[in-house]
Design a protein around this nucleic acid. Sequence first.
DNA 1: GGCGGAGTTATGTATAGACATTATTCCATG
DNA 2: CATGGAATAATGTCTATACATAACTCCGCC
Lengths: 264, 264
Amino acid sequence: MWGANQLRRASTRHFTALSVEPTDNEPQGKNVTLHERIRKGLESRILSGELKPGDRIPFEHELMEQFSCSRMTVNKAVTELVNRGLVTRRRRAGSFVAEPPSDSTMLDIPDIQADLQQRGKAYSYRLLKRHVRAPLKTRQVELDLARGGEILEVVSLHSSDGKPYAHECRLISLEAVPNSRTADFSVSPPGSWLLDHVPWSQAEHRISAIPADAEMTALLDVPDGSPCLLLERRTWHDQSPVTYVRQTFPGDRHSFVGAFSHTT
Amino acid sequence: MWGANQLRRASTRHFTALSVEPTDNEPQGKNVTLHERIRKGLESRILSGELKPGDRIPFEHELMEQFSCSRMTVNKAVTELVNRGLVTRRRRAGSFVAEPPSDSTMLDIPDIQADLQQRGKAYSYRLLKRHVRAPLKTRQVELDLARGGEILEVVSLHSSDGKPYAHECRLISLEAVPNSRTADFSVSPPGSWLLDHVPWSQAEHRISAIPADAEMTALLDVPDGSPCLLLERRTWHDQSPVTYVRQTFPGDRHSFVGAFSHTT
DNA sequence: GGCGGAGTTATGTATAGACATTATTCCATG
DNA sequence: CATGGAATAATGTCTATACATAACTCCGCC
């Protein structure tokens, strides 16, 4: 009935991490509880990428020994990580780093693919441009990404049933993701590649409405000046910028839909 | 630097509640754990409005007795409610239903007020129209809201530093919120009134880009046909529709910004 | 070989008790 | 009357233990 994209997994529990953060090497005075220290220790190992999705985290009895505490305490820490979606547990087998949620349409384009297919549409993708270049000195976003090095620019077009669905211009930090230099983006979009290679990232989104310029008019097949939805997203991994993407959707054909609740 | 509105507290942990739900009168077989039953019991009393923000929930020793279980078990249940933001605790005093978060700009207009003031802008509000009417039979949204009765329509304009900021057309279910019939919306917007009177609601959002029509051109002071951001929101309380709102922002002046994270 | 059951292991839930912390009440003393 | 301090009552954390449950391993019997 309301249809269109889903805006899911949009949570801001940790959004402060984008500005300030406590450097993690167990500082903060003394009044940190034990289960919190255990949780934060595991959490930072997961978020930093040391423990990757699918990896087993230490058994509860190992953590008991390591922190010389009771099982209830480590259980509380791990249970909290399960609640936050970072960990899944399997009886007899152990506890494992969870796969990052893939239903975050708002977070990345490739889910448009799943979304479209769910609604019986054909998804297709076309690479328009791909090159490595220096950041523009006038664009702070590009300088942040480059961090002294170069950036990879990937421009592409996503289509639904053969009709243009979204235009995407993406910048990737070669500093943060060096092996993106040799990745193949001619078949699948960079978004899905990044999701596989850089899980557990934070993102900042900006949605606005803009008129179609000459380029969009041609690529998206819309009248000149017609309203388009512009979605900009900057993504970080472990405090360092990873990618910036600018996606343009024809405004009359698409919208972002999401369900929210006060209750978390 | 990125400025603009904040898209906060946007979480979808419970978004399935909008479609299916388990009616709550403790069904589901037998394999429901005790702390879950305790938590759900309190949760439904809070979400239904029986326990309002500021109310004290039973002491842990009372819950112990009521469910004849140990304190650790009720503690686990209440701790989970704290994690979800439904409850706050004060030593010696007890545990209380939390105030609903007010930083949810995306969820309601009145926070634009706070947002603007924070950035040194003057916020003003003007009521354009207000009347009670029957739902249009051709609009499913209005029929859902009315539930056999009438609906209240409130049209208003929000301004920043004297310049139009957003146009708002709101429908309120007189069935779900009967005392809105006599509420005064000439000074403060209906959004903030509703937040005070119907806390703990769920909402479904839709963001799209549309061209300004003649009415918006005049009210928002933008060129004819220029892109506008349209935010539609339907809100439920305890499974029943409360309000539908349609907010139009000049696209060149505003955007929605939010920070997200995979990690919850 | 394969099938089934016993044992093993790690998580899942719950208990009873201990001590700490915080904030309130209330009383005694100056 | 004010003020300091003890008693009190709630949550905050942690322990040691128990039993349940799921899933895997291994071994023996047909």
